[in-house]
Design a protein around this nucleic acid. Structure first.
Length: 290
DNA sequence: ATCCGGTTGT
DNA sequence: ACAACTGGAT
């Protein structure tokens, strides 16, 4: 059932899509997969340079799999959520071992890879292989919720999005990209630009006066002072050091010894950091087994 | 339901 | 200060 939303947004997208490098002709599935992982919870502007470095350095899964995980973590830079870099490295290894070094083009095989969930698996199938799948991220959820239901935060499932996509594979893939783009550029969470929206005339949310969502209750959860910040500070020291780092240098980044130790232990548990001895640490440097 | 980063726009 | 940013794993 091709919907008004999918059709109009696709038309709009073909004239207004941002020129992002991973959308260029000839970009392979591996490079697109990398872009999708990097874009998880991370704005486009910050992904651009790191993505370019990655695809030049590791143009195939085998290239990344051949290096220690620490190199992926180092090259991740300050993108945030560095476990994504580690999972991407594991993912490359799985692709080499189980899929002959080629990114699989089947849903169940992608979902079985580390770091690849419901969103990323379908995004790769749609944008790299031109298949028809519901690609549901926070943008699509917001667009469909607003336009069809007139509310900000209604739960939007895969089936609901699948129903509104065009039937043709490439048309559906185009519509998926278009819905995400609309959510990112026009139907923004904070400052929607309804004046330039291609579906304004049929938007329930606009008709209802753009009602704000009910905020049930949300913890303040500031970043400053959290374990997350301390993990980031510790990892930054290890990233920027070519040589293993003695504990006393890590002690400098955060005054609270208890929290510092807890953060270090969690990094070790995640596999983001490796202990060379009891007081010397480094990024994972073991060359992966073939 | 929670944890997991780091930057930018408001 | 604060949410938002093309989520995934536990």
């Amino acid at each position: 059932m091709p919907s008004f939303l999918a059709e109009q947004t696709s038309i709009w997208y073909q004239k207004n899509a941002r020129d992002l490098p991973w959308r260029h002709e000839g970009v392979g599935a591996w490079a697109i997969l990398i872009s999708e992982v990097m874009l998880q919870q991370t704005p486009v502007s910050r992904v651009l340079t790191v993505w370019q470095e990655w695809i030049e350095r590791w143009p195939s899964p085998a290239d990344l799999a051949a290096e220690p995980a620490g190199e992926a973590i180092r090259a991740w830079g300050r993108l945030g959520y560095p476990r994504r870099a580690m999972r991407l490295h594991e993912c490359a290894g799985e692709i080499v071992r189980r899929h002959g070094g080629e990114v699989p083009d089947e849903l169940d095989k992608l979902l079985a890879l580390p770091g690849i969930g419901d969103y990323t698996a379908r995004a790769v199938l749609s944008f790299a292989f031109g298949q028809r799948h519901p690609v549901v991220d926070t943008n699509v959820r917001r667009v469909v919720s607003r336009v069809h239901h007139g509310v900000e935060d209604r739960a939007i499932g895969l089936a609901e999005v699948a129903e509104l996509l065009p039937l043709g594979q490439s048309d559906a893939a185009l519509a998926s990209a278009a819905l995400m783009e609309l959510g990112a550029v026009v139907c923004a969470a904070r400052s929607p630009r309804c004046g330039v929206c291609p579906v304004m005339a049929e938007c329930r949310w606009k008709q209802l006066g753009s009602p704000q969502p009910e905020k049930p209750f949300r913890r303040p959860q500031s970043y400053a002072g959290t374990d997350r910040q301390v993990r980031g500070l510790l990892l930054a020291v290890l990233r920027e050091s070519a040589a293993p780092v003695p504990r006393h240098r890590l002690d400098l980044v955060w005054p609270d010894g208890v929290q510092r130790e807890r953060a270090l232990q969690s990094l070790l548990a995640d596999g983001l950091v490796q202990a060379q001895s009891c007081d010397v640490f480094l990024l994972p440097d073991s060359t992966p087994a073939q």
